[in-house]
Amino acid sequence: MYIIYHCYGSAHSSVIASAIHVGMLPKNRIPSTEEIITIPHFDQTRREEIGNPFYIGRDEYGIEVYIIGMANNKEVLIRSIDSLLKIYNIPENQLVLVNSLSQINMITRVGGYLSRRLGMVKVGRPLTIKGVKKAYYQFVDLVDSVKERIRESLGQNPDSTE
């Protein structure tokens, strides 16, 4: 099984969600600025890298977690991924696509635009971090819901003590 968190540019929301998923960021508190900026790919993805999947790590179930930016081509990219699954006879349930863009607030959007699109990193990056911190527990909730789906698909009871 594979998990791909996707957003517009694979620089902010997908990076945060995937980092929480694999344990790079805490679930029980808002991370420090240093913790956020040291996550691989945070506010780093270049425009020409959009559409390339980036490996983030493995979760506690051994599932590989990736991020990908889809820009304004979300439907086309998802259709392409679905087609590749069919071509290679990979069951659809082996890939979980998670839209993390819905967790982003206006502060992060503006910061991301300034930093990634206009190259104004010194102004944009602090704004993205402020926005991420403000919405952090929404990311935690998203990851928790993804992990619940995974537990269900693996047939594991989240309340069991095994």
Score class of each variant (00 low, 15 high):
1 M>P: 04
1 M>S: 11
3 I>G: 01
5 Y>A: 02
5 Y>I: 00
6 H>Y: 15
7 C>R: 02
7 C>Y: 04
8 Y>D: 01
10 S>K: 02
10 S>T: 03
17 A>H: 04
18 S>I: 06
19 A>Q: 01
20 I>N: 11
21 H>G: 04
23 G>V: 09
25 L>C: 12
26 P>G: 09
26 P>T: 09
26 P>N: 06
27 K>R: 14
27 K>T: 13
29 R>A: 12
30 I>W: 00
31 P>C: 08
31 P>L: 05
31 P>E: 13
31 P>Q: 07
31 P>H: 07
32 S>Q: 03
32 S>C: 08
32 S>W: 07
34 E>S: 11
35 E>V: 07
37 I>E: 12
41 H>I: 00
43 D>K: 04
44 Q>C: 07
44 Q>M: 11
44 Q>K: 14
45 T>C: 00
46 R>K: 15
50 I>L: 10
54 F>R: 15
58 R>K: 15
58 R>F: 12
60 E>T: 14
62 G>I: 10
63 I>K: 06
63 I>T: 13
64 E>D: 15
65 V>L: 10
65 V>P: 05
66 Y>E: 03
68 I>H: 00
69 G>V: 05
74 K>P: 00
76 V>S: 02
77 L>T: 05
79 R>M: 08
80 S>C: 10
81 I>E: 08
82 D>Y: 10
82 D>E: 15
83 S>C: 04
84 L>Q: 11
86 K>N: 12
91 P>T: 05
92 E>D: 11
95 L>G: 10
97 L>S: 02
97 L>I: 09
98 V>N: 06
103 Q>L: 06
104 I>D: 08
107 I>V: 13
107 I>K: 14
110 V>Y: 07
111 G>E: 01
111 G>Y: 03
111 G>W: 08
117 R>S: 11
120 M>R: 14
124 G>A: 08
127 L>S: 12
127 L>Q: 14
128 T>H: 02
129 I>T: 04
132 V>D: 13
133 K>Y: 03
134 K>P: 03
134 K>H: 12
136 Y>L: 06
138 Q>C: 05
139 F>H: 12
140 V>N: 02
144 D>E: 15
145 S>Q: 13
146 V>H: 04
147 K>N: 15
148 E>A: 09
149 R>L: 13
151 R>C: 08
154 L>S: 05
154 L>P: 03
155 G>V: 02
155 G>A: 03
158 P>R: 11
158 P>K: 09
160 S>K: 07
161 T>N: 06
162 E>D: 05
